[in-house]
């Protein structure tokens, strides 16, 4: 049985569909990429799992099972507790994801104490251990620091440490390297992979960067317009993508080996085809 099972999940803003009948599984310890262009709904899936969808978006159908429990059927307080205990988020922008008026230490330890009932001493020992695991020099000093005293890369390391603090079974990484500069991106990717393997956590990696997918993921799901287009293992996908849109997406990825080559956009005919498909789905479901 998969650790995360999403079945026929649909969501809307007013009449506009955001997710259409999305089904998705992540097995324990598996790294799955969620790929798609802006607006494809990839971040929305992460938010739906974690219960942080913006107020205007309503889930209209489907199931989200985390460790066998149907999240959408739980009462809100119970749902928050389950999510806090079993899942964690590595956010996109480390510059805005830490509370500027609080020291780093409490930002990692507080919820271990508040939500999971650890002793303060245990939580602090755990935080120090994790900060060392994410290769932060002088963890003691960093615990005492405020976010503005750390660089972007350091802050992302802190957030990764914090995500792993409660030994979650599932981590959702929402474009965790997009806001960082290229040299730091590589280190952070390697670090996420390293931490994922050490803790054997399932990882749902939301990204638009196929290069990143090739580096750290095993499986991938391609989304377009809130709909799953293709599911494959990473090897199979890069060898022979099944869907025309996937092929075009792969062709559009810039090659670092050939920087002079001009970028190939996804052909309009494929986009038109997909739009027609979405419109058809809309007519048959409503």
């Amino acid at each position: 049985m998969s650790f995360l099972e999403i079945t026929s999940l649909s969501a809307r803003v007013g009449p506009v569909p955001i997710l259409r009948d999305v089904s998705l599984n992540v097995a324990a310890g598996e790294v799955r990429a969620l790929v798609g262009e802006s607006g494809a709904g990839k971040s929305m899936i992460g938010k739906a799992i974690l219960g942080t969808l913006p107020g205007a978006i309503h889930i209209t159908g489907g199931e989200i099972r985390l460790d066998g429990q149907d999240l959408l059927a739980l009462r809100p307080a119970e749902r928050r507790r389950v999510i806090g205990q079993t899942a964690a988020l590595i956010p996109q922008d480390p510059l805005t994801a830490l509370n500027p008026v609080r020291r780093i230490g409490p930002q990692i330890t507080r919820r271990l104490v508040d939500i999971l009932g650890w002793s303060k001493r245990d939580a602090e020992a755990r935080a120090l251990e994790l900060l060392a695991e994410v290769h932060i020099p002088d963890p003691k000093r960093v615990m005492q620091s405020y976010p503005h005293e750390l660089s972007g890369g350091m802050r992302q390391r802190v957030l990764i440490a914090s995500a792993f603090a409660a030994e979650p079974k599932l981590i959702i990484a929402d474009e965790p390297t997009t806001a960082l500069d290229v040299t730091v991106q590589k280190q952070i990717l390697r670090l996420i992979k390293e931490m994922q393997q050490r803790h054997n956590t399932a990882l749902l990696f939301v990204t638009h960067d196929l290069g990143v997918v090739a580096k750290i993921c095993q499986k991938l799901t391609v989304l377009f317009g809130g709909m799953v287009l293709e599911e494959a293992s990473v090897e199979a996908f890069f060898a022979a993508p099944q869907h025309a849109y996937s092929r075009a997406l792969l062709a559009a990825t810039p090659k670092y080996t050939d920087p002079d080559q001009s970028l190939t956009p996804v052909p309009q005919s494929i986009l038109d085809d997909l739009q027609a498909q979405l419109d058809f789905a809309e007519r048959t479901t409503t």
């Binding site: 806090g84 964690a88 988020l89 956010p91 996109q92 994801a97 919820r111 939500i115």
Partner: peptide, 12 residues
Amino acid sequence: DYVTLARTHGYG
């Protein structure tokens, strides 16, 4: 984002 992150930690 840090408010959203706190929500995922399980805070009401």
